[in-house]
Design a binder for these strands. Structure first.
Lengths: 139, 139
DNA sequence: CTTCATGCAAAACATTTGCAGCTGG
DNA sequence: CCAGCTGCAAATGTTTTGCATGAAG
């Protein structure tokens, strides 16, 4: 969170109450929130905030490299404000929860892919879709 | 391609010229075409075809499990008509080409992810973003 | 003070839907 | 024939944009 604010100040972007609220949510939530979720939370403190501002703020933070956007074709994009580096996600298809698993075997895979195709690999995205332990229990 | 047509007939869906054209494109193209690309190609043979029909056809084929949709947040969704099972993709960020690398280390990764998080894994998606050999050459 | 950000509304997209008329089997 | 497809246009949902007002620094 401090890092995000630092980056904003550094580049002469203003720290407005709305931006502060968005940053706070992104930095603290473990839920990979959607624009809509951020919007609703910000509204609790600043009821006049508009969706456009949320969009503007998150794309600003994205450009600064401080948040990662996880796009989905169905339109429910989610944001990760804790770890802007690419990393795998575990997505529960029932409750839509997204967690970050600690995986080790990934770098070998990247190397293999690069060798076999001749591509220079810049980034990647790995999502697993499944059912989380809680949802399995509350069947 | 024959398999797609078979599946359509089997479920009593009509083989219209438009559907045939879409199936042909999906079965033959190695380019993972977008809806727009399919639309333009179909229009060459059937100039009155509407975008809505393309959308309806690809989502029908998707429901039948005959094509895989690769969704992107930027809206440029692409389709894979050759291999409906989830598999990794190499995406060139310059020319947008998408190829399928033959990767072996993936099943181990899935197992590791499942063990570490307790999720039951149903599916996954792995995309590498980079620069393809051709683009590197034509720098 | 000056510049930039906000908030509203309208615009821009991509995709979906409703429906009259057409057509494949 | 006639159920189900097509093509049009309108509806939808999400994200973007333009611009006047307001607030940060």
């Amino acid at each position: 969170m401090q890092q995000m604010l630092e980056k904003l100040r550094e580049q002469k972007f203003r720290i407005t109450p709305q931006r502060l609220a968005v940053v706070k949510i992104l930095a603290h939530s473990k839920n990979h929130p959607s624009v809509e979720m951020i919007f609703e939370q910000v509204r609790r403190d600043f009821p006049t905030t508009s969706l456009a501002t949320i969009y503007k703020t998150v794309s600003l933070l994205k450009e600064l490299g401080e948040v990662l956007e996880l796009g989905f074709p169905e339109g429910g994009n989610r944001f990760d404000g804790n770890n802007p580096a690419p990393h795998p996600h575990m997505i529960c298809v029932r409750c839509k929860k997204i967690v970050d698993p600690p995986l080790e075997a990934l770098s070998g895979l990247t190397r293999e892919a690069s060798q076999k195709t001749g591509y220079t690999i810049l980034s990647h995205r790995l999502d697993f879709f499944g059912i989380c332990p809680e949802c399995k229990q509350n069947n």
